[in-house]
Amino acid sequence: EEKRQVKQVAKEKLLEQSPNSKVQVRRVQKQGNTIRVELELRTNGKKENYTVEVERQGNTWTVKRITRT
């Protein structure tokens, strides 16, 4: 359940930055209360990979860091 929520948060964050792209989740890793989500962003056939680190704060998820990989 929490992985599902985190995927959603990570996707939304990337789509905010580039709204007309397609996002696909590649991998989800958990480390303590930080969850790392690896995503693939496609814009006009151009692929970019991103890693989004999401942290739990109380009962909400906040995006800590977005890295292009």
Rank of each mutant, 00 (worst) to 15 (best):
T69M: 13
G32Y: 03
V28I: 13
I66N: 00
S18G: 03
T43M: 11
V63K: 00
V23G: 01
V63M: 01
R56G: 05
E55K: 05
R42S: 13
T51S: 07
K3I: 15
Q5L: 11
K46I: 12
G45C: 05
T62P: 03
V6P: 09
K11Y: 05
K47I: 13
S18N: 15
T51A: 09
R27S: 12
L39I: 11
Q29M: 13
L39V: 13
T62L: 14
E40Q: 10
E53L: 12
Q29D: 09
K47F: 12
T51V: 14
K64R: 11
N33K: 10
G32R: 03
N49Q: 12
R27A: 09
E55D: 04
R68N: 11
T51F: 09
E55Y: 08
K11V: 15
K22H: 13
N59V: 04
R4E: 14
K30S: 14
Q31W: 12
K22T: 14
L39H: 00
Q29W: 14
V63R: 00
E16A: 11
K13W: 06
K11N: 02
T69Y: 07
E16Y: 02
V23Y: 01
N44W: 06
I66T: 05
V52A: 05
V25N: 01
V23M: 04
R26C: 07
E2C: 08
S18Q: 12
R26F: 06
E2A: 09
G45H: 07
N59C: 05
E2H: 08
A10D: 01
T67N: 05
R27K: 11
E12H: 09
V25Y: 03
Q29Y: 15
L15E: 05
Q24L: 14
I35D: 00
V52E: 00
N20W: 01
Q17K: 11
R26W: 04
W61R: 02
K3Q: 14
V63W: 01
T43Y: 11
V37F: 02
R68P: 08
R27G: 11
Q29I: 14
K13T: 10
R36V: 14
T60N: 15
A10S: 04
I66S: 01
T34R: 09
W61E: 02
I66V: 12
N20R: 09
S21T: 05
E1T: 07
R27I: 07
Q57V: 15
K64D: 01
E12L: 05
V25D: 00
K7T: 15
V9K: 07
K47G: 04
L15K: 07
Q8F: 02
G58W: 03
V25T: 03
V63T: 02
N44G: 09
Q8S: 09
E40N: 03
V54C: 06
V63I: 07
L41N: 01
K22Y: 11
R68L: 13
N20L: 06
T67H: 09
P19A: 04
S18Y: 15
E38N: 06
R42A: 08
R42L: 14
Q57E: 13
S21E: 02
T51W: 13
R68K: 12
R36S: 10
R4Y: 08
K64I: 15
I35N: 02
K64M: 13
R65F: 11
V25A: 05
L15T: 04
K30N: 10
Y50S: 00
I66R: 00
R27H: 10
R65H: 11
L15C: 05
K46G: 08
R26Y: 05
I66C: 03
K64S: 10
K13Y: 12
E53A: 04
G45E: 07
Y50D: 00
K7E: 15
T67A: 08
E48Y: 11
K46F: 11
E38W: 11
G45Y: 05
V52Q: 00
I66Q: 01
K64G: 04
R36G: 02
K13E: 04
R4A: 12
K64Y: 06
Q17A: 10
A10P: 01
V9E: 02
R27N: 09
A10N: 01
R68Q: 10
T60P: 00
S21L: 04
S21D: 02
E2F: 03
S18W: 15
N33L: 08
E16T: 05
V25C: 04
K46S: 10
T43W: 09
K13D: 01
Q8Y: 02
R4G: 06
V23K: 01
Q5C: 08
V54I: 13
K47D: 03
N20M: 07
T62A: 12
T51K: 04
V54S: 00
T34Q: 08
E2K: 03
Q24V: 15
N20G: 13
K47Y: 11
E2W: 07
R68V: 07
V9Y: 04
V6W: 05
R4M: 13
R36L: 15
N49M: 13
V37A: 01
T69A: 10
Q8D: 09
G45K: 07
Q17S: 09
T34W: 08
Q5P: 03
W61P: 03
K13N: 03
E53P: 00
V52N: 00
K13V: 13
V37K: 00
I35R: 01
N20P: 02
V25H: 02
E48Q: 10
N59I: 06
R27D: 05
L39G: 01
T34K: 07
V6E: 02
E55T: 09
E40L: 10
E40V: 14
V52W: 01
S18F: 15
Q31V: 14
K13G: 07
E53D: 09
Q24R: 14
S18V: 11
L14W: 03
V37R: 00
S18I: 12
Q17V: 14
K7M: 15
R42K: 08
V54R: 00
T69P: 03
E2G: 06
K3C: 12
W61F: 08
G32D: 05
V54F: 13
V52I: 11
G45P: 01
K13H: 09
R56T: 03
L14V: 08
Q17C: 10
E1C: 08
T62Q: 11
Q8N: 09
L14T: 02
T67W: 13
E38M: 14
V63G: 00
E48I: 10
V52D: 00
E55C: 05
T67G: 03
A10M: 04
L39T: 02
K3E: 15
V9T: 05
Q24I: 15
V6G: 09
L41V: 14
V28N: 01
N33C: 05
K47S: 12
V9N: 02
Q31L: 14
R68W: 03
G58R: 03
Q24K: 15
A10Q: 01
A10L: 08
R56M: 09
K64V: 14
R4S: 09
T43G: 10
Q24P: 00
E38C: 07
L39K: 00
R56W: 15
T34N: 06
E1G: 08
V52S: 00
K64F: 06
K22W: 12
V37S: 00
V9F: 09
L15P: 01
E55R: 03
K11C: 10
K47P: 07
E55S: 08
N33A: 10
T43S: 11
S21C: 06
L41A: 07
K46Q: 10
K22V: 13
G45T: 07
E12M: 07
N59Q: 10
L39F: 06
R42I: 15
R65P: 01
Q57I: 15
R36K: 15
V28E: 01
S18H: 15
V6D: 02
L14H: 01
V25I: 11
